[in-house]
Design a protein around this nucleic acid. Structure first.
Lengths: 120, 120
DNA sequence: TTGACACATTCCGATATAGGCATATGATGG
DNA sequence: CCATCATATGCCTATATCGGAATGTGTCAA
């Protein structure tokens, strides 16, 4: 099996730097493909492909406007990502030493070893 | 060119679901490879490989403990991810309709079209 | 030293990516 | 209907993944 598809979820979709840049640009409002491509220094086909991925995971939506197709941000799909990562917040907001202490406290509190059946 | 290496940054590293699960488990404290593998229903080599990736991007660190190697969380690398995604917070906390309004207001405020030179 | 246990690495195959380039599709204005 | 601009797709290559199975490496205990 290969890596999970870039279109499998938001996590995979935003793993690509250029797609992240596209999303950032779209915060400023809807943009046509060519505009994005130019601003990001990529070719038009590249932009279209990235936008396709973003559209498939639902992070952007399209709207025809004459010849152009305006892509707009739909950040709702980023919320789960934010929440998942946020679950680690206290682990980086404290220094390592204090973190270790914290973990130790947890262990003590549970009055047991590192974990049940971690061996073998 | 292929996709960016999974070890290129935290974004790519956490794109893999199993690696995310590993990180979650590690919030409970240090764990040996076999323990993680068993809890996640994966083989030991698989766990080792994923842990290697996580270690290369700095999301976990290892510590030898006799025969075992205890892997621990180092969530600092997740902070940039959290901040990046957080930059989109207001775009999902508001409904779409209101969001559109907001974007329109921005445009009006700048008294110009969607963007400068978005055509061609 | 040897055996056993914990873990890492390697080789394989299947798959899918991102980039480059050419070209097809779509809508618009004459 | 045609030329044109804006986008989308198709094709090809190089690369790297993840999974599986086998095997290498390291540590401890007797």
């Amino acid at each position: 099996m290969a890596r999970a598809a870039t279109t499998s979820d938001a996590f995979n979709a935003i793993a690509e730097p250029q797609r992240r840049e596209i999303l950032v640009l779209l915060r400023g409002g809807e943009r046509p493909v060519t505009g994005l491509a130019r601003d990001l220094g990529m070719t038009q086909p590249q932009a279209s492909k990235h936008l396709r991925v973003l559209r498939e995971v639902g992070l952007v939506r399209v709207r025809g406007a004459g010849k152009q197709r305006l892509y707009g941000l739909d950040a709702r799909g980023l919320r789960p990502v934010h929440e998942w990562v946020g679950g680690f917040e206290r682990f980086w907001s404290e220094s390592f030493d204090r973190l270790e202490e914290y973990v130790q406290e947890l262990k003590q509190a549970r009055q047991e070893g590192p974990h049940d059946g971690d061996d073998q």
